[in-house]
Write a protein that binds this DNA or RNA. Structure first.
Length: 506
RNA sequence: GCCCCGGUGGUGUAGCCCGGUCAAGCAUGUUACCCUCUCGAGGUAGCGACGCGAGUUCAAAUCUCGCCCGGGGCACCA
């Protein structure tokens, strides 16, 4: 059948079908399966074993956005069941980072608060013969697990297991002497289901509970119980977490099963989020710390002048998928620029400054608005015959040609030598003249740090990841407060980091 | 090795479930021009992609199979 015949048949059988409506692309995050408005609960489950990164920020944002959309509840829950990894400063990092981001949570808790409840569930598994105490050493466990064979402890009677359990709670056993294993299936293709450990002794003080407990639940049990306690309906998390074991534990304990939506980790090209890669940089002092503006930590991004709204908009725009991805900083920074543009004061910055004396320069007191369109106030500058302009700008100008000192007047370069001179060339705005920003002798010296990716394409540390540009800024710079972001025209948006030091955002 | 899960322009994503509206949308990037006393922001136009192969079908980015490539899991970590 030819196309025209098909069309004829179509309009005959289904009149109107030949004028299809354009489908609209999805805007925002996709709807959640089985989500009921007003009855959804989500969770932010960081392990406080490192600083909050963009990866966390994005995952948190997704959960928060859904909380808003479904009018649900959001838990900030610290997964602190490994006292050896957890530190107080990291809890705070997630709290302050989330606040900064604008992610508001309704409830906050630590898994370590609920150890007794988790013990109760563990005890039940033991009583019901669904778990057992095992004293095999780690190597033996591994070997038997690989072979798909059970050890002699699997069939211990419940009261014998309970006896060990009580001893464990009373700290009668050292680390490694016993573990509690959940009876799964020693033949399962998934090794993690072959009688996984759900409790182990960790002989190390916990930052919150001190020496009170030494028997700690592992992640899967803790999570299954906690999600029940919090009434979580939807779990949105990245795909390095497995679900089968938790599901089995829920069944064994009669707990509800939340919806689970998984997505790939949020990676940025040249800036991995992984602690394994980042820690050596900090330890070897290749970066100034975890809050270095090159770092993908929330503190790093903040110092770089990335606005919380930019992270939110970015997250909304890229969404989440199961595809592996490596984001380019350009999208985030582009969003950031658009947010910054209408609210950032313009200040003249002269990199690599060269002194320029202008003959016949009229003394002026110019008032220049801080923003070309929006009312952000203005500053007044007193000018005489001495200026500074950028070395790079000067090179672009031939002797005898005219350029304009932005927002001031025109000037003709009379000598380009090592001590360049110019002469006043009228106020009238001439079409096609180059316009350069400038500074007067009342200028302030600044250093601008320009962050770049931490790793090059070969995966090696980028030695050139923090370029430094020195120059002069006009006097109004002294009125800025730490954290203020301004635009240096023809240079970029910069954030005042510390006295005399700016960080280039983009 | 075993078990999952993915592959749409340089980058990110929409579309895939329910085949035709897709000679593939949007953003970023890039090029040119317009606007602007900024190389920012804004505007207009251009560039650029369905991993490969087979099958089903009148019709495949979309369904099926095989292959290739990538990621993750296989802890007394979370």
């Amino acid at each position: 059948m030819s196309l025209s015949q098909q069309e004829a048949l179509l309009s005959q059988k289904y009149p109107g079908a030949e004028q299809p409506v354009q489908k609209e692309g999805r805007v925002g995050l996709p709807p959640l399966p089985n989500a009921v408005k007003g009855k959804a609960a989500f969770r932010l489950p960081p392990e406080p074993s490192g600083f909050m990164t963009v990866g966390h920020a994005m995952a948190f944002t997704i959960n928060f956005l859904y909380r808003q959309e479904y009018d649900g509840e959001l838990w900030l829950r610290f997964e602190d069941t490994n006292p050896r990894k957890v530190e107080p400063r990291y809890y705070e990092s997630f709290r302050s980072g989330s606040k900064w981001l604008g992610v508001e949570w309704d409830h906050e808790k630590n898994v370590s608060d609920d150890i007794e409840t988790i013990y109760a569930h563990g005890r039940r598994l033991l009583e019901e013969g669904k778990a057992y105490a095992c004293s095999c050493d780690a190597d033996k466990v591994k070997k038997l697990r690989f072979e798909g064979k059970a050890c002699e402890h699997r069939d211990s009677p419940a009261d014998a297991n309970l006896r060990v359990w009580v001893e464990l709670l009373a700290k009668k056993h050292k680390e490694g002497d016993y573990v509690i294993r959940f009876k799964g299936d020693m033949q399962n293709v998934n090794y993690s289901l072959r009688d996984t450990n759900i409790f182990r002794v960790i002989d190390h003080p916990h930052p919150l509970t001190g020496e009170k407990y030494s028997l700690w639940p592992t992640y899967d049990l803790a999570n299954a119980v906690e999600d029940e306690i919090c009434g979580i309906t939807h779990i949105l998390r990245s795909s390095e977490f497995r679900n089968e074991l938790q599901q089995l534990l829920r069944e064994a304990l009669g707990l509800r099963a939340p919806e689970v939506i998984q997505f790939s980790r949020f990676n940025f090209k040249g800036t991995p989020v992984s602690k394994r890669l980042l820690r050596p940089l900090v330890e070897q002092k290749l970066v100034s710390g975890w809050d270095d503006p090159r770092m993908p930590t929330v503190e790093g991004l903040k110092r770089r002048g990335v606005l919380p709204q930019a992270i939110r908009d970015f997250t909304l725009q890229v969404g989440y998928t199961k595809t592996e991805h490596e984001y380019d900083w350009s999208i985030l920074l582009s969003i950031n620029r658009k947010l910054l543009d209408p609210v950032s004061k313009r200040l003249f910055f002269v990199p690599d400054p060269v002194e320029l004396s202008v003959k016949g320069a009229p003394e002026r007191k110019v008032t220049i608005p801080y923003h070309p369109q929006n009312d952000l106030g203005s500053r007044t500058i007193q000018t005489a015959g001495r200026f500074y302009i950028a070395g790079g700008d000067l090179k672009a100008i031939k002797e005898g040609s005219v350029f304009r000192l932005m927002d001031l007047y025109n000037v003709k370069l009379t000598s380009a030598g090592p001590t360049p001179t110019a002469e006043y060339a009228g106020d009238e705005l001439l079409e096609g003249t180059r316009k350069f920003q400038w500074a007067t002798p009342a200028r302030v010296e600044v250093k601008v740090l320009a962050p770049d990716v931490l790793f090059d394409e070969k995966g090696e540390f980028n030695r050139d990841s923090l370029k430094e540009v020195r120059g002069y800024v006009e006097e109004a710079f002294t009125k800025l407060k730490a954290g203020d972001i301004v635009q240096f025209p023809r240079f970029g948006f910069c954030r005042l980091d510390s006295p005399g030091t700016m960080v280039l955002s983009a």
